[in-house]
Structure formats: C-alpha cells, structure tokens
Design a protein around this nucleic acid. Structure first.
Lengths: 154, 154
DNA sequence: CCGTATCCGACGCGATACTG
DNA sequence: CAGTATCGCGTCGGATACGG
C-alpha cells in the first residue's frame, strides 16, 4: 500500500516515492516528469548527447542565438512543437545552464531567454554538425526516407 | 476486419497495411518496427539528428572506426546494450550507408562491419562534438545529474 | 502572454528465449 | 556466432483545456 505525504505518495511495496504529478495508476511520470533511468555519462559524446537530447532543443538554442528570445516568438518559429514541450525543453536548457530566463514583472507577462556564456560555446559545435548535414543534404534525405517506404509486394 | 497477404495483414477499416512483425493487437511495430511518424527534415541539423538518433549509434560508429568490426566484439565494447538493439541500430546505419556489412560464408557465422567513405566523413564531426563534451565534462556531469536528485522535503 | 494538468499514442530499448 | 520473436517498462511529446 501507499501513504500520503505533503509532496507526494510513498509506495511501501516498491519502496518508492512518487511526487505529485505522478500518474499513480500506471506508475509513470507523465507531466513534468522526472526520469528514472540514469543515462550513460562515460565520455564527452555521452554528455553532449544528454544535453541535446530532446526534439526541439537544438532548434531552440539556434533561434535564441539568432535573437528570438520570447516564448511566443519561439513558438511561432517552431509551429510543429506544442507549447507544453517547448516549455519543458526550455526549462531543461535553463537547468543545464545553457540559457537564462528573464521575467519582466508586467501585465501581460513578458519573458526573455538568452544564451549563457556556456551556451554560446556550443553554437560553433552545432554549426559543424549542421554544415555536415547541409553538405550531404540530398543523400541524407534519400537514405532517411528509404526507411519510410513500406515494402508492399503487390 | 483484415485479410492476410503474403507479407502481412491488411486492415480495411483503417486502410492500413501491417507487415509481419507487427503486434497486431495493440497496433504497434514492436520488433524490427517501422516508424509511423515522419521526422522533420528541414535543415542540416535535422538530418544529422535523424541519422544519429539511437542510443548506441554514435558509439557504434566510433568503435567501428577504431577497428572493432565484429558484432560480438561490439557487444563486448558496449555491454549495456542488448544484442537486439545493436542489431537494429547496425542495420539502420547500414541502410543509411554509413557502414557496410560483410558476411563470410563460414561456420560459425562471421560478420564484419566497416565505415563507408560517407561514414568516414562523419568521424571528424563527432570528434568536434566529443571534444566540447570532454572540455566541459565536469560542468556537464553536474548539471545533468542535478535533474536526478529527488527533492524530498522530509 | 505564459505556464500547468490530463490523457494518450508512438516509440526506444532491455530481458529473455529460441533458431540455424 | 549472428540474428529473430515476444513481452513489457519507461519515456517523449502532441492535443486539449484551464488558470494567473
């Protein structure tokens, strides 16, 4: 069974603490979740992968670097992303000290993100990545799309 | 209802074809699955992200480049990965023309992977990534691990 | 304008057992 | 040794509705 705490629930059977926000019934963190599985952090490549992991993170860094700083603005530049996920990934980038957030105490609310000095060092690295992608654009598009063609036989 | 074909099942209700390997009951491709959702392929960064997406792909490229070519060898270098996923990701890298596979007709089976010329062009790019990760190793480890500390209040 | 909560489909991948 | 099949947990992220 479980007992209630101020900030969540404790499941004594599994000896686990589930903060609020947990979907208790299926035991997953669905909203503003925290991960349970530690990632690999052995080498530089692992560490980079970890901070860039997230569907829109690279794009967010890129656009913030280009001077698009407000959430609504970023939302407009990345219309395929939901507001929810942009918020989550911006928070993660902030936690990872790649960007900072400035909140203006006005109505309606105004928020601006900027790259930190640390975040700025990542930009040239992303450029190298993007350059390779651009140089091989056609070939990459081709081999990637190959996987999505269903091989019917009639 | 659905009808059987030589290479899968056709669901007329949904006008979809499900190749074998599909877990029919929950409608997912669980084993050797194919993705349903097209990724973004707008710019170089998207394309790179797509070929590197996969928990072990970078490491596989890295080790193959270092001369560890046989599946069992790669398995030993990456003990945390299951054989299943290594196979899947090696196949993907092969489909994406970053590596080639050579099968020797012997018993017991012998297989060797190598980087293609295309694949080799990716190595310096990965080096840049890894270098940034190595240079900022401590800071990265710190900010990443921050997220995994559970904030109890008692 | 900015953020949160709920619900849910899609997906990554480990564990395990099995084949040739 | 190399690969496939089955099962199931953990996670990402979209859709939608709501509150300050």
């Amino acid at each position: 069974m479980y007992s209630l705490h101020k900030y969540g629930k404790y499941d004594s059977d599994r000896d686990k603490f589930f903060p609020y926000g947990t979907d208790w019934h299926i035991g997953l963190f669905l909203c503003m979740y925290e991960r349970k599985i530690l990632p690999n952090l052995n080498c530089g490549l692992d560490l980079v992968a970890e901070v860039l992991y997230g569907k829109w993170k690279i794009r967010l860094l890129w656009f913030i670097n280009e001077g698009h700083k407000r959430p609504s603005e970023l939302q407009r530049k990345i219309p395929d992303a939901s507001k929810r996920v942009l918020t989550i990934q911006l928070n993660e980038l902030e936690d990872q000290e790649l960007i900072t957030k400035k909140i203006y105490p006005v109505v309606p609310p105004k928020v601006e993100y900027s790259l930190t000095e640390f975040g700025k060092t990542l930009i040239p690295v992303l450029s190298v990545l993007g350059k390779w992608g651009d140089e091989n654009e056609e070939r990459l598009r081709e081999v990637i799309l190959k996987r999505y063609e269903i091989k019917h036989d009639e």
